[in-house]
Design a protein around this nucleic acid. Sequence first.
RNA 1: GGAGAGGUGGCUGAGUGGUCGAAAGCAGCGGUUUGCUAAACCGUCGUAGGGGCCUAAACCUCUACCGGGGGUUCGAAUCCCCCCCUCUCCGCCA
Length: 427
Amino acid sequence: MHDLSFFRNHLEVMQSRLASRGFALDIEAFQELDRRRRQCVTESEQLKAERNQATVEIGKFRKAGADTTQQQQAVRAMGERIAELDAEANKVDAEFRDVLARVPNIPHESVPVGQGEHENVEVRRWGAPPEFNFTPKAHWDLGPELGILDLERAAKVAGARFAVYWGIGARLERALVQFMLDLHTKEHGYQEVLPPFLINSASLYGTGQLPKFAEDLFRCQGHDLWLTPTAEVPVTNLFRDETLSEDRLPISLCAYTPCFRSEAGSYGRDVRGIIRQHQFQKVELVKFASPGQSYQELEKLTHDAEEVLERLELPYRTVVLCTGDLGFGSAKTYDIEVWLPGQAAYKEISSCSNYEAFQARRAQIRMKSGKGKSEFAHTLNGSGLAVGRTWVAIIENFQQADGSVLVPKALQPYVGTERIERVPKAV
RNA sequence: GGAGAGGUGGCUGAGUGGUCGAAAGCAGCGGUUUGCUAAACCGUCGUAGGGGCCUAAACCUCUACCGGGGGUUCGAAUCCCCCCCUCUCCGCCA
């Protein structure tokens, strides 16, 4: 959500900067809606002022014992007109807000201009893809062969795009969660939180998933509750409608949650394996920062996520998204992509974004210095990391000729073994 | 799930139909006094939207907001209905 008065007064600037990310702002339609909205509000408020005055007079007259039937009728008629005007004002205002709520954020000036994914710019590359003296397998073959990944039974108990992990496979997933949380809390200065996995509409609105992306979510029938698509939502909304004191910023939080996404509109993409699931596990990093420090914090947060891959000896590259590939609310985003031998490609495993005040304005997250006026905080978040995709990266990168998988050294204490071998069938 | 008690400004807390955006206290901010600190005293002290004003700040003014949404009334923090949340007790449950 943009600042209304700023937006209204800088329409041309907004238009040109939004155009860089492929969003066409219709200035005339906006102005017309804004004009109608103000007209309704002004007229209604004038009438309300008159009514309030008349009402006070009636009170005085009645105290004096006078008959006020006539005045009462007049005010009643006024009330009817006000109701009409308010209905119209509400309608126009809702329309106006809806338009405004669907305008994406302005890209930061450091973001490269581009049309889409292919124009993202690589900023770092770490490690080298492993070389195999055999043809490496993809996890969708390797996992079932090892007996640790079972997509068929997952389809039975839930459906497509779900997974069941068996034995050491389940333990590997759990070990990764533990490892990531330990790294971020003990070495990167994050405080761990465990939020609700079901969240209400107000929270989703606060971080920008609603109203625009409802079809991407799972909703609980009969309740105002949705399955969280990412911990970003409950964790960022922790401070909704609150004012943070500036000297406590930045606040850095990390949270483990499962994430649920309907993946409507992604039919046919990543259908094999567990790259794209309705449910996946993620450790999320969230920061609340002052405007002056938020870009520095974005760099830190991104490095904190990259560190996970380095400790796990997984090759990756980091790209900065160009204007055309930027997410709805983000002003700047780094994607971290891990190397997957099964696909011989770098695949997104984390997305680290600075939303500036875009979410904070929606969620009313303010900050205040000692005596200054309060202003909106900046919010940031990034995966640290997507656990399922990290699981895939380990299986594929550390696979051996005999079909077993070596466990990276840093993870061995958590997994309790140096090598993953075929698990005995449960039945 | 059942019964009861509540939800008022940053906090505490008054207010049961009109002059209440809301007493009082605390915290905050500005000032006076003071060598400094402390204290005392004076003042100030909510948010959002509209207009004055072409733009920005300041200022003035209007409107809305006393958990949320509806209703009654000339007029609602106050009366009625629905919902949400908190607390206490009971039931059930990991």
